[in-house]
Design a protein around this nucleic acid. Structure first.
Length: 441
RNA sequence: GGAGGAGUGGCCGAGUGGCCUAUGGCGGCGGACUUGAAAUCCGUUGAGCUCGCAAGGGCUCCAGGGGUUCGAAUCCCUUCUCCUCCGCCA
């Protein structure tokens, strides 16, 4: 969420920055430009009326309640009270509309972000390692996994439907080994604190990180039916308490400090967590239908940081490097691209995608996305910090990145480490986590 | 799932319709005393919004939301959270 005052005072500048994302983003500002002046006028009137009312009421307390004067004043106060209520209702309405409009506006891209309309305009920043060369036609992970008996797509579909799968034997073990390796690396080498959060969160949490209200269609929502029968005194149905399956651990990790003022000395705060992630993948019909690449449920180790504004952009570089370290440890070839303004995620100011090489697809595919959000999430979630007692609280900056998507890492290991006979070598760093197993065959 | 109880400032806790601009204590910060510290004493102590060049005003916030009233921390409705007991369960 952008700062309302900043938007109002710098309307054209903000509009220009949003235009870099595309025409739709630019238009999201229009309702705010219309509502903000109305709110301002209303607030001033309301405040004046309330002041008058407060003063008059204070005088009432000193009067004899039986006197005629008391009765007369009560009558006149009734009118002021009614006016106040009416103004309050109007103000509430404008406030709600303004809040909603503000929640729909995406973040401003950092000045350094390259121009561009789509994925095609992203800029390659660096490559690590070499594409593995094969003396045979490399298979994709679907062939490898099914032949080795370690991935079962048919039974995944039987249990849950399309975009679900089952890992079995060494496949299941590989998933577990990868998440262990990643958590160990980030906690031991990179100084992150390990968290094991809930996988179901409330709507307030999703608003904090920016998935709601704009991207509700991407989420799986749970409405407990035990609440079905509850009604309020007016026989209206009670608002349902809804929970959502997390699309990423970013949501619970970032919201850990929602509505808090952090001690400046505690910054930066760095959390990592393994969680399953759930995405409805609405609108992706026909895309990546084969294999593990795009599932409704997948595993991921996530990195989340809370930073001072001054150190946040540098922290993005460090964070990206920490995600890359996993791929380096596993000896996987990858490249890093910086997203252009048109491809940038809604809340991000700046973002690097790490793309791992998949020989079976003859393509680089995203395996991590590392973003700097500025104060966009922290303002929504009211996460602030204070350096010295007495200082004004400041909004923190948040960052997060996958470290890494485990399913896609498993795919990359299978495809990059495959051998002519269809067996797969276990990367050296993973062997201890695989109980000494060196070859999956 | 059933039956009770409770949510007040960083923390504890008083407050049962107007004298609440929220008592008191603890903690924090500043100062006095002291060679220094402790003890003691004095002062201070949240967040958001808004008017103003400023100095300085003003408004809102007692778990969240709604209501009653001229006036609500206090009364009513509702949601949430926590605690105790019973039941069930990994």
């Amino acid at each position: 969420m952008l700062d309302l005052r900043y938007v109002v005072e710098n309307l054209e500048e903000v509009r220009a920055a949003l235009a870099r994302r595309g025409p739709t983003s630019k238009q999201s500002l229009d309702p705010i430009a219309a509502l903000a002046p109305r709110r301002s006028v209303l607030m001033q009137r309301l405040q004046a009326v309330r002041e008058e009312k407060n003063e008059a009421n204070a005088a009432m307390a000193k009067l004899d309640k039986q006197s005629d004067e008391f009765k007369a004043r009560r009558e006149s106060l009734k009118r002021i009270s009614d006016e106040t209520k009416q103004l309050e209702a109007e103000e509430r309405q404008v406030q709600v509309e303004l809040e909603h409009a503000l929640l729909m506006v995406p973040n401003l891209p950092a000045a350094s972000v390259p121009d561009g309309k789509s994925e095609a305009d992203n800029v390659e920043v660096r490559k690590h390692g070499e594409k593995p060369s094969f003396a045979f036609a490399p298979k994709d992970h679907v062939d490898l996994g099914m032949t080795l008996g370690i991935i079962d797509f048919d039974r995944g579909a039987k249990l849950s439907g399309a975009r679900f799968s089952v890992l079995k034997g060494h496949g299941a073990h590989l998933e577990r080994a990868l998440l262990m390796l990643m958590l160990d690396l980030h906690t031991r080498e990179h100084g992150y604190t390990e968290i094991w959060p809930p996988a179901l969160v409330n709507d307030e949490s999703l608003r904090g990180t920016g998935q709601l209200p704009k991207f509700a269609a991407d989420l799986f929502r749970i409405a407990p039916d035990w609440q079905e029968g509850i009604t309020t005194a007016d026989k209206e149905p009670a608002p349902r308490r809804e929970l959502y399956l997390i699309p990423t651990a970013e949501v619970p990790l970032t919201n850990l400090h929602r509505d808090e003022i952090l001690d400046g000395d505690a910054l930066p705060i760095k959390y990592t967590a393994y969680t399953p992630c759930f995405r409805s993948e609405a609108g992706s019909y026909g895309k990546d239908t084969r294999g593990l690449i795009r599932q409704h449920q997948f595993d991921k180790v996530e990195l989340v940081r809370f930073e001072r504004p001054a150190t946040a952009e540098a922290a993005l570089q460090e964070l990206t490097g920490q995600a890359e370290a996993v791929l380096q440890l596993l000896g996987l070839h990858y490249r890093v691209v910086e997203l252009c303004a048109g491809d940038l995620g809604n809340g991000a100011k700046r973002c690097y995608d790490i793309e791992v090489w998949l020989p079976g697809q003859n393509a680089y595919r995203e395996i991590s996305s590392c973003s700097w959000f500025g104060d966009f999430q922290a303002r929504r979630a009211r996460i602030r910090f204070r350096d010295k007692p007495g200082d004004k609280p400041q909004v923190v900056h948040t960052l997060n990145g996958s470290g890494l998507a485990i399913g896609r890492t498993l795919v990359a290991v299978l495809e990059q480490y495959q051998q002519a006979d269809g067996s797969v070598r276990v990367p050296k760093a993973l062997i201890p986590y695989m109980g000494g197993l060196e070859l999956i065959k």
